[in-house]
Design a protein around this nucleic acid. Sequence first.
DNA 1: CTATTTGCAAACGATTTGCAAAACA
DNA 2: TGTTTTGCAAATCGTTTGCAAATAG
Lengths: 157, 157
Amino acid sequence: MSSPCAQHQHVHRLIQQPLTELTEKLRRGARKVTAPRQAILDVLRKHASPLTNKEIHAALGKEDCDLATIYRNMHTLELLGLVRRYDFGDGAARFELSAEEGSSHHHHLVCTRCRLIVEVDECFPEEFQSAIASRHGFTQVQHRLEFTGWCPKCQSR
Amino acid sequence: MSSPCAQHQHVHRLIQQPLTELTEKLRRGARKVTAPRQAILDVLRKHASPLTNKEIHAALGKEDCDLATIYRNMHTLELLGLVRRYDFGDGAARFELSAEEGSSHHHHLVCTRCRLIVEVDECFPEEFQSAIASRHGFTQVQHRLEFTGWCPKCQSR
DNA sequence: CTATTTGCAAACGATTTGCAAAACA
DNA sequence: TGTTTTGCAAATCGTTTGCAAATAG
């Protein structure tokens, strides 16, 4: 992971990568394609797992922007459907690009006693989800599925 | 839970309310049966949907106790498996009695734009969950399943 | 009596917001 | 230009924690 960019000034060429699609959606949502937004999406594209705002902030490096700006933008990006919000119960929201944007889809098994987290492959049946969506007239339906329990080590507690 | 078979004991002194079962678990967990705890469980038994600590606090009324006490107790009760923690993404944790304690098991479909919440009946296949649990050596496995999307009214936003 | 638990207040960490300056379209 | 967005700082809000007094067992 390298950031060959110069310091962020008033001199930023509309970069390189296939941000086209993302940019496209921003525009469609009547949002401006700003440096912070591009940087945030860029960080997200480079990470497989969900990141907290603070982690995103730390990963920005050169393209640094205010933490508050990240918070504001995560709301915007979530609203536009570009990112997905997660909540693993540790008090901090986490985000990753929406499935359509290329992120992998997976779930977690969390120990409610020691917070051990294990990745899980099983997923909620697509047919069921579609049925639920149409029955209630919802679109853009996704699901958040998390398993909780007591891990081997915590069972005797 | 190291011993699946619970023994009947002739040790009962202040069992005067229907909290017997809950009280039982508290004792087994070497916890004291205090007024705040009984009041909290009582409130939870009277509500179908998950409540935030603040809501529980408000519902206590006469049996009022400090908010901090509620926070501390919810952790204890969750640890003992008496209550279940939910997170609907609005920043506040919510709790309801564990399934075994009589609460109904259901899921939710939440609009990420206006926060409309609809109850859903579909549930994650039991076979799958069992497989996941045994594969990772977990016990007391439950799942948290939430659907998100855009409700009819918010689709045009 | 002794270990837990509670009330109270202060401490915290995550997230939000007001406002003037800066950046897009 | 007219808006939207950002930086900065202060404000919120949910939750946690230290400590002495109160309480269950």
